[in-house]
Design a binder for these strands. Structure first.
Length: 769
DNA sequence: AATTTGTGTATTTTT
DNA sequence: TACACAAATT
């Protein structure tokens, strides 16, 4: 255990502006914190200092954007103060606002047990709404409609004001989607009926609460003497106005941010919030943290030069006293597959040269889809890695299913939960019966729970009523158990008696086993929750409140923590690595081809800035000259951002070139000089007339979806007797392979699964000799 | 009802 | 390409 240091000792480790930020007394304060300038340190010390000065933690509210940031900050404060600060309200905007809304729910017509719909629930409900309105779901695409509604809520535009605003209506008319406003209205009303809020509602409804109930606002205003907001540049209007209301009484609002790292405009973040803070609070103190403690001089210089191309930003000069460091390396690869190989071998080399750990390395890319080639290349070199993102544990189907049982038991108006579980396992209650139940609930203005309790009264006589009654009785039983038992006992009871666990147990396929284990993992998590002495409320509802706002990045780290991190640049924000690789620096990828406006281009550039400034010791940037896109090998060109780099700090790294630089001809007539022709794919060979003998047999098959179906990309590789290892599900021997007519799918018989056949559909298989 | 084949669509970032 | 979903087929 580290020896406990006094706050004074901590303070002496700060530089002058940091100390000013910590010691600032009353009134609004804005801390403009350049990348790597110790912003989190300043913020945590400030909170610790306030508490040490006698401010009750109960009167402090600290808001972050991620659970992880909140958790880490709390830990550091506790470390400094040498004790727990339970009473301190520190959390994400969403979790803190949810807490406030649960307390005040009745004022807005919800119960305090309202459900939080995640994006999947929201989109599913939206889909039902669009269908029921008999609209064409090819015109009203769920994703587009959802994005529109979300944007409206983030800008605090209610459905009422949306429908009464001629310019919105005109805009929708022109984009051939005149019913958008109506959909918005119906969606909101359905959520309300389900006693549910989506993520955006948590922000929106707090504003409604504060606007319509001044006495409630007053209560929180009085309570929160100090308000601190991290990553202020990422706040949207709803977040901004809510916090401004909260701070209006004491005016002790401290915001920390860096306009140069604002990268979330696409989900409503408004950079003007930070640019205009000084205008909103004329008496605000502004402190700049400009000394970077993280990166080498060269990395800082390159980052500064890149961001200087942006027009809209607060003036500041980030500098560092760190060593000069190595030049930034730029690697050009022939294809994306080669790029993966080059990066992996570079990691291998640097590990040796610097005696570094895997965890010192990060590969950063623009989109999740780019991770694949790096995964493979790292696997080939036996370097452990972890891909961040993708489905979080709590988004897996089997987990959501069980949680839906919990949700519906708690909130019997929860339409989406009901839909998930009513026929799972099969009870003979099909889609049409579900529709009737929902309709009856809406028409009679009662909850789903009430309808299924008396099916004959609400739905009339039907042979299905018996099944409905059985289901209703089961839920009633669950509710009773929930009243008496803690979260773990209740969850176990529900898992067993719902039939869910049995169904999964009976599924003997490999994935079925994984699902069964996942459910047990969930039950374990609930057990840990119950056993946690810090946790006062041990009900299942309390557990659900906690997990509703978790994301994939919040998960407990796996046993093996010494891994190379593969993640999007967005996910890397706030992190730091000694060795950073920014990969796929190609026009159309980064900057993305999806952007059109100048403002978006500036945000894209800030994203590049964020990526560069993650690196402490060494930065490598790579791009490929050809890349597989939608199955075709296409020429690719270096990103225009590369032109903005200060080349005095650059060393051109290994160039892996195939044939000519002329891109047109490259695709047609490459001369293979690559030292490992086995990395070329069959497609590539066919397209480019590479002699067949240069292509060694493939060694691996990809499978993407580790669910009900496996897929093999090149099924001809799979032969009888072959031992096959799966990344996640262990291995087995292929007994036989039946190719289907499409030749893209096949049924593979494995020894371990016995007679059961699996449809292979592109998972991660490795063929062992 | 379960399995197989066909089709459409998205390829930007996420609390 | 590659995945989800719908439709067709057993």
């Amino acid at each position: 255990m580290e020896e406990h240091l006094s706050l004074a000792n901590y303070l002496s480790s700060l530089n002058e502006p940091q100390r000013q930020a910590v010691l600032h007394q009353q009134g609004p304060l804005m801390i403009i914190a350049g990348a790597g300038s110790g912003k989190t340190r300043a913020l945590t010390y400030r909170i610790a200092y306030l508490i040490q000065q006698g401010v009750d933690p109960f009167n402090i509210l600290a808001l972050t954007f991620t659970n992880k940031a909140a958790r880490e900050m709390r830990q550091r404060i506790e470390q400094i103060l040498g004790g727990s600060v339970q009473r301190l309200w520190m959390g994400t905007f969403h979790s803190i606002f949810a807490r406030i809304l649960r307390t005040e729910a009745s004022l807005l017509g919800y119960t305090s047990e309202f459900t939080i719909y995640d994006t999947e629930d929201s989109k599913s409900l939206l889909k039902s709404v669009i269908h029921e309105m008999e609209l064409d779901d090819r015109i009203y695409k769920v994703n587009t409609v959802f994005a529109r509604i979300s944007a409206a809520k983030n800008r605090l535009i209610s459905w009422q004001s949306y429908l009464s605003n001629p310019s919105f209506l005109k805009e929708d008319e022109e984009s051939a989607k005149p019913k958008l406003g109506e959909i918005y209205k119906n969606y909101v009303q359905r959520c309300f009926k389900a006693n549910a809020m989506d993520f955006d509602d948590l922000l929106f409804n707090v504003n409604v609460l504060f606007r319509d109930h001044p006495e409630v606002l007053k209560k929180y205003q009085t309570r929160f003497e100090h308000l601190l907001i991290d990553e202020f540049q990422d706040t949207n209007l709803a977040q901004y106005l809510a916090t401004r209301s909260l701070a209006a009484l004491h005016q002790n609002i401290c915001v920390v941010g860096d306009d140069a790292q604002s990268i979330y405009a696409f989900r409503g973040a408004d950079i003007r919030n930070i640019l205009n803070f000084a205008k909103d609070y004329p008496q605000a103190t502004v402190i700049r943290l400009e000394q970077n403690y993280r990166s080498t001089k060269r990395i800082v210089a390159v980052a500064n030069k890149v961001i200087a191309h942006n027009k809209y930003q607060l003036p500041k000069t980030v500098w560092t006293a760190n060593e000069e460091g190595e030049p930034i390396e730029i690697i050009r690869a022939a294809t994306d597959i080669d790029e993966g190989r080059l990066i992996a071998s570079s990691i291998f080399e640097l590990k040796m040269r610097y005696q570094a750990h895997n965890r010192d390395f990060a590969v950063l890319y623009r989109t999740h889809a780019q991770s694949r080639v790096f995964e493979e290349a790292l696997r080939r070199l036996n370097i452990n890695y972890r891909v961040y993102g993708g489905l979080s544990f709590y988004q897996r189907k089997e987990i959501k299913d069980l949680i839906a049982y919990f949700r519906f038991t708690i909130n019997q108006q929860d339409e989406e939960a009901f839909r998930r579980i009513v026929n799972l396992p099969r009870r003979g209650i099909g889609e049409s019966t579900v529709q009737k139940i929902l309709l009856a609930a809406a028409e009679n203005n009662v909850s789903i729970g009430e309808v299924i309790a008396q099916p004959e009264y609400f739905l009339g006589k039907s042979r299905i009523n018996a099944a409905i009654t059985d289901f209703a009785e089961m839920i009633k039983d669950f509710a009773k158990v929930m009243q008496q038992k803690n979260a773990y006992e209740t969850a176990l009871y529900i898992a067993k008696n719902s039939g869910l666990l049995r169904e999964l147990y009976e599924d003997k396929t490999i994935e079925g086993r994984v699902r069964y284990e996942n459910v047990h993992e969930l039950l374990n998590a609930i057990k840990e929750f119950v056993d946690d002495s810090q946790q006062e409320d041990k009900s299942l509802a309390a557990f659900l409140h906690q997990v509703a706002l978790l994301t994939s990045t919040d998960e407990n780290d796996k046993e093996n923590t010494d891994v190379v991190s593969l993640m999007t640049i967005h996910q890397a924000k706030g992190l730091e690595f000694n060795f950073v690789y920014i990969v796929g620096m190609e026009e159309g990828i980064f900057p993305s081809s999806m952007i059109s406006t100048q403002a978006e281009m500036e945000e894209e550039r800030r994203l590049f800035y964020v990526a560069i400034t993650r690196a402490a010791k060494r930065l490598t940037i790579s791009y490929a000259l050809q890349r597989y896109r939608y199955g075709e090998l296409e020429p690719s060109e270096p990103s225009s951002f590369l032109e903005e780099i200060d080349y005095r700090h650059v060393r051109m790294g290994r160039v892996n070139q195939v044939g000519f630089i002329d891109k047109q001809r490259l695709v047609q007539h490459p001369t293979v000089e690559s030292d490992s022709p086995k990395l070329l794919s069959k497609d590539f060979a066919e397209k480019t007339n590479v002699p067949k003998n240069l292509i060694s047999p493939p060694t691996s098959v990809y499978i993407h979806k580790p669910s009900a179906h496996f897929v093999a990309s090149d099924l001809s590789k799979l032969k009888e007797g072959m031992r096959v290892e799966h990344l996640r599900f262990g291995f087995g021997t292929v007994v036989s392979v039946d190719l289907k007519s499409s030749e893209r799918r096949a049924v593979i018989h494995f020894d371990q699964v016995g007679e059961k056949t699996l449809l292979l559909n592109f998972a991660k298989l490795m063929i062992i000799e």
